[in-house]
């Protein structure tokens, strides 16, 4: 999200805490929100830098796929994020895997902002 006349604040893209999300997969779906609504290019850049590629090109939706099968779905209008852990990850390891994906997304967003703030 660009703001005329000034750098974006670091907290503008903050993620809400990660919680279990609705869905039919056992511990596969996890939810958070992005506060601040980054533009598509910003979020896509963050995720691609973390090894995900966009597999859905709908303007209202981004679905990004990790090389290990995980997915991150993002509703652009509401900021809803769903982290989907790949089905091959053992059930007991799914919460930790989701947390790792969440941390890497949060870190990527923070570093993106930090870079922008310094320009």
């Amino acid at each position: 999200m660009s703001r005329p006349g000034g750098a974006e604040r670091a907290e503008a893209f903050r993620l809400t805490p990660l919680v279990p999300d609705t869905g039919c997969g056992r511990s596969r779906h996890w939810a958070c929100h992005i506060e601040g609504r980054p533009d598509v290019a910003t979020l896509a850049g963050c995720l691609e830098a973390n090894g995900l590629h966009r597999r859905c090109d709908h303007p209202a939706l981004g679905v990004f796929r990790h090389s290990r099968g995980h997915e991150i779905a993002w509703v652009t209008a509401t900021g809803r994020i769903q982290i989907r852990v790949d089905i091959e990850v053992p059930r007991s390891e799914r919460p930790a895997t989701a947390a790792r994906l969440y941390r890497s997304l949060a870190g990527a967003l923070a570093s993106k902002q930090s870079a922008r703030s310094n320009t």
Partner: peptide
């Protein structure tokens, strides 16, 4: 149907 209704895809579309 439940999974689709609850999904981010449905929310977006």
């Amino acid at each position: 149907c439940g999974g689709i209704l609850a999904s981010p895809e449905w929310e977006a579309l």
